[in-house]
């Protein structure tokens, strides 16, 4: 089936197998490999994208459900060569090791800060509870979120 999705502001079309996820379609059909596939069961958050402005796991959205809808991926955050404030903060704080969790965490953090410009530590913890990192132990990720929120 053919789906039409507005990704990062531009309309894209792809031919999908009916049972495939939005994550698979983004990575394999639509040319947006930024969202990562780690668990395919909603546990890790590495595939986080915004669907009509809401943070979701792209692995749990049927590609056909995104037909006619808006998706923002990590590729949509930077302005040309200029990183998004959250991306820059992750670099500056050293919050990236292997980097596999980073796209999902960056999207989830951008979503948090857009709704709540100065979150408390507990609010950060709750907002990022669906994103797993196997490398950093989260301390530097916290530093990055506080840095991006202008509180560091």
């Amino acid at each position: 089936m053919r789906i039409t999705v507005r990704i990062n502001g531009d309309e894209h079309q792809a031919d999908c197998w009916e049972g495939e996820s939005l994550l698979f379609a983004l990575r394999e059909k639509l040319g947006f490999p930024g969202s990562k596939n780690a668990c395919e069961q909603g546990e890790c958050g590495s595939c986080s994208v915004l669907l009509d402005g809401a943070l979701v796991c792209a692995c749990l959205v049927l590609a056909a459900q995104a037909d006619g809808h808006d998706v923002t991926t990590v590729e949509g955050l930077a302005e040309g060569e200029t990183l998004h404030a959250v991306q820059q903060a992750f670099v500056d704080a050293g919050a990236v090791q292997c980097g596999f969790c980073t796209p999902g965490l960056v999207v989830a953090t951008a979503d948090l800060l857009q709704r709540n410009a100065s979150p408390s530590d507990d609010e950060i913890r709750e907002a990022l509870s669906g994103n797993l990192c196997r490398c950093t132990g989260y301390a530097k990720i916290f530093d990055a979120v506080r840095l991006a929120a202008g509180k560091a």
Partner: peptide, 19 residues
């Protein structure tokens, strides 16, 4: 929401003819 259905599909625990 697909949060139960997609896990089943992704792990091939079912292959309905129609969704």
């Amino acid at each position: 929401g697909g949060t139960d259905v997609m896990v089943a599909l992704n792990f091939d625990r079912g292959r309905p003819a129609t969704m």
